[in-house]
C-alpha cells in the first residue's frame, strides 16, 4: 500500500492547501448528500417546493466543481505535486467531476417531482424511494471511504453497485408493466424511467469515486476490480 500523509510537508502552506482541498470535496459531497435526502423527502411527501429548492441548489454544486477544479490547477502550477500528492489532486479533480454529475442526476429526479409529474402509483413511489435510499446509503459510504482513504470500505461500496443495478432492472420490469396499464400518461412514465436511470447512474458514479480512492491509496490503476 502506498504511503499517504497530507500533513507532513516541510511547507506548512502546502499542507494547508491539500487539507483544504480534501475538505472542500467533503463539503461538496455533504451538499450532494443533502440534495439527495431532500429529493427523497420531497418524493415521499409530494413536496414540489422542496424539489424546486433542490433544482436551484444544484447551481451551488456546479460552482463548487469549478472552484475545486481551479484550485487543483493552481496547486499543480504552484507546488508541482508528485507521488501521493499528485494522485490526491488527480483523484479530487476526477471525483468532483463525478460528484457534479451526480448532482445533475439528482436535479433530474427533483424536476420530475417539482413538475408534479410522478404518476399516482404507490408501488412506483415506494420502489423509487427504495432505490433512492439504497443509493443514498452508497453515497454516504463512498464519501466516508474518501474521507478516511479507506480502501476496504471503498472496495465494499464499489461491490454494492451490483445490488443497485439488480434493483434497477427489477424496477424497470415493474415500471414497464405499469406503463402498459397507464398508456394515457406515457410521457410522465417516460420521465419516471429517466429518473430511475438517474438513481442507477449515481450508483455508477459512486463506484467511480471508490475506484479513485483505491487508486489513490494503492498507487496503481486497478481498473478491473
Amino acid at each position: 500500500m502506498a504511503y499517504i500523509e497530507i500533513n507532513t510537508h516541510i511547507s506548512v502552506g502546502f499542507n494547508k492547501e491539500l487539507e483544504d482541498l480534501k475538505n472542500s470535496v467533503l463539503t461538496m459531497g455533504g451538499l450532494l448528500e443533502q440534495q439527495l435526502n431532500d429529493t427523497l423527502h420531497a418524493l415521499k411527501t409530494n413536496n414540489a417546493g422542496l424539489a424546486e429548492k433542490v433544482v436551484i441548489n444544484d447551481k451551488e454544486i456546479n460552482s463548487m466543481e469549478i472552484q475545486i477544479d481551479e484550485e487543483c490547477m493552481r496547486i499543480i502550477a504552484r507546488r508541482h505535486p508528485t507521488a501521493s500528492d499528485l494522485r490526491l489532486i488527480m483523484t479530487i479533480a476526477k471525483a468532483t467531476a463525478d460528484i457534479e454529475r451526480m448532482g445533475d442526476e439528482i436535479e433530474r429526479v427533483a424536476k420530475l417531482i417539482s413538475h408534479s409529474n410522478v404518476p399516482d402509483s404507490e408501488t412506483l413511489k415506494s420502489s423509487m424511494l427504495n432505490i433512492g435510499e439504497h443509493v443514498l446509503e452508497m453515497l454516504k459510504d463512498t464519501l466516508d471511504a474518501f474521507a478516511r482513504l479507506d480502501i476496504m470500505a471503498a472496495q465494499k461500496t464499489y461491490e454494492n453497485d451490483e445490488s443497485i443495478d439488480a434493483q434497477y432492472k427489477d424496477l424497470l420490469s415493474i415500471t414497464i408493466l405499469e406503463m402498459q396499464q397507464h398508456s394515457d400518461e406515457l410521457e410522465n412514465w417516460l420521465e419516471v424511467l429517466w429518473a430511475l436511470r438517474s438513481f442507477e447512474r449515481i450508483g455508477d458514479r459512486c463506484k467511480n469515486v471508490c475506484e479513485y480512492v483505491i487508486f489513490l491509496v494503492e498507487g496503481s490503476a486497478n481498473r478491473d476490480i
Binding site: S63, Q67, I68
Partner: peptide, 8 residues
C-alpha cells in the same frame, strides 16, 4: 455561492 478557497 459558497466560497471554498480564500486567496488574497
Amino acid at each position: 455561492m459558497l466560497k471554498l478557497f480564500e486567496h488574497d
